[in-house]
Nucleic acid binder design. Sequence first.
DNA 1: TTGTTGACTCCCG
DNA 2: CCGGGAGCCAACA
Length: 115
Amino acid sequence: MAGRENRETFYDRVYALVRRCPAGCVITYGHVAVALGAPMASRAVGYALHNLPAGSDVPWWRVINATGSISLKGRGAQADLQRQLLEGEGVRFDTNGRTELARYRWWPGEANGEG
DNA sequence: TTGTTGACTCCCG
DNA sequence: CCGGGAGCCAACA
């Protein structure tokens, strides 16, 4: 069975990783890219979430930029939605609209039984 | 096949 | 701390 169709696109990889992100935790585009083996593909990560279809079980709102802020600022209600969702998970935001990355930052290795 | 775009990130002033 | 510029990757037309 030569499955040449098994080649998953970068998108699926991002979704799969973000999906592993537990509630109350967040991850930056850069970390997602690194986890996928492309520390410099942070842009592609954002692009993947941009194409994220509706109805997906992917917690895209747990993905934020390296500054710990929401990049969707000015994109639409999505930014406000993400913040509400995160707050609903227990994530707190600073007066500047930033979160404590060192506190909520999540890593896929943690779910591997390394902690 | 090439060219453009994007929910990014780092460096400099 | 804030603003501007450059570089990387992947998907789409």
